[in-house]
Simulated scan of single mutants.
Amino acid sequence: MASSFKPEQARAPPAVPLPIPPLTKFKIGICQLLVTPDKERNIAHALKAIEEAAKKGAQLVLLPEIWNSSYSNDSLPVYAEDIDAGGDASPSTVMLSEVSWRLKITIVGGSMPERYGDKLYNTCCVFGSNGKLKAKHWKIHLFDIDIPGEITFTESKTLTAGESLTIVDTDVGRIGIGICYDIQFQELAMIYAARGLFIYPLNHEMIMISTTFDILIGYRLLLHLFMNPLHYTRLMFLHLGAHLLCFPGAFNLTTGPLHWELMQRARATDNQVRY
């Protein structure tokens, strides 16, 4: 007797198709850098690594976390840059902008300490092939650790945690951005890989809209938000469905070897995206 099971009806609602990437095959350059106390030397070293990666055909180049600064609570305020001001206030991003435009590549610029007002952030900048800053991600999950006799570091002592998700369309596809310890929290990768439209109100509840029925609910939600402005002071729309997740990191040698590779494989497998 023939089965009445119809696979196409197994999902309700059906999955939203993943956006087609602009490129289906491209090279990625991953730059490992030895950081020194000399900021100018770090910038020059990163520039050379980017140029070498592009020379070998890389269309997307990634830098590591805190590549232009020593990674300590004492150093971060000293090396911090005013990214929005640019120019002499941010020589690291000036270099990334120039080289991305000159070589016509996309750069996920690892991360660097950023001074924003009276706060410091661990910030990842994404530059497009036109040299423009396409996105800026503030590390959400700060790394505080105390293993007696091994390692003690309290990132939150100096840095402020970010509160926003970052997903950006580039020449090589849609990329979800995180930084180092963000990888430990699977929900972030799951949200980036999800297909559909998300509404992100201030209360941090993620509301997904993926079908016509859900869109009607979304309009009702928007009406409620605008009728009750005191409840929500910020509203953000995210068209998700990332092709690639980039989480530049600088994991320590105590806990890093135990789970850094494992976490990458888990996030890639669970969410069926490149990591």
Results as ranks from 00 to 15, higher is better:
Ser3Leu: 03
Ser3Ala: 03
Lys6Glu: 12
Glu8Val: 11
Gln9Glu: 01
Pro13Ala: 00
Leu18Val: 03
Ile28Asp: 06
Thr36Lys: 10
Glu40Gln: 14
Asn42Arg: 02
Asn42Lys: 04
Glu52Pro: 10
Glu52Trp: 06
Leu62Arg: 03
Leu63Lys: 04
Pro64Ala: 01
Ser75Thr: 05
Pro77Gln: 01
Tyr79Leu: 01
Glu81Cys: 13
Glu81Leu: 10
Asp82Arg: 09
Gly87Leu: 03
Asp88Ala: 10
Asp88Gln: 11
Ala89Arg: 07
Met95Tyr: 09
Val99Trp: 09
Val99Asp: 02
Lys104Asn: 10
Thr106Glu: 04
Ile107Asn: 05
Gly109Asp: 00
Tyr116Phe: 09
Tyr116Pro: 00
Gly117Leu: 07
Gly117Lys: 15
Asp118Pro: 04
Thr123Asn: 02
Cys125Ile: 06
Cys125Gln: 01
Phe127Cys: 07
Ser129Leu: 00
Lys139Val: 03
Phe143Ser: 13
Ile147Val: 14
Leu159Ile: 06
Ala161Thr: 13
Ser164Cys: 10
Thr166Gln: 07
Val168Ile: 10
Asp169Glu: 15
Thr170Ala: 07
Asp171Glu: 14
Val172Ile: 15
Gly176Arg: 07
Gln186Tyr: 14
Glu187Gly: 05
Ala189Met: 14
Ala189Leu: 07
Arg195Ala: 09
Phe198Cys: 00
Phe198Arg: 04
Asn203Met: 00
Asn203Lys: 12
Glu205Lys: 13
Thr212Ile: 15
Ile217Ser: 08
Tyr219Pro: 02
Tyr219His: 15
Leu221Gln: 15
His224Ala: 11
His224Cys: 01
Asn228Pro: 00
Leu230Asn: 13
Thr233Leu: 04
Leu235Cys: 15
Phe237Glu: 04
His239Met: 09
Gly241Asp: 07
Phe247Leu: 06
Pro248Tyr: 05
Asn252Phe: 05
Leu258Trp: 14
Trp260Cys: 08
Gln272Trp: 07
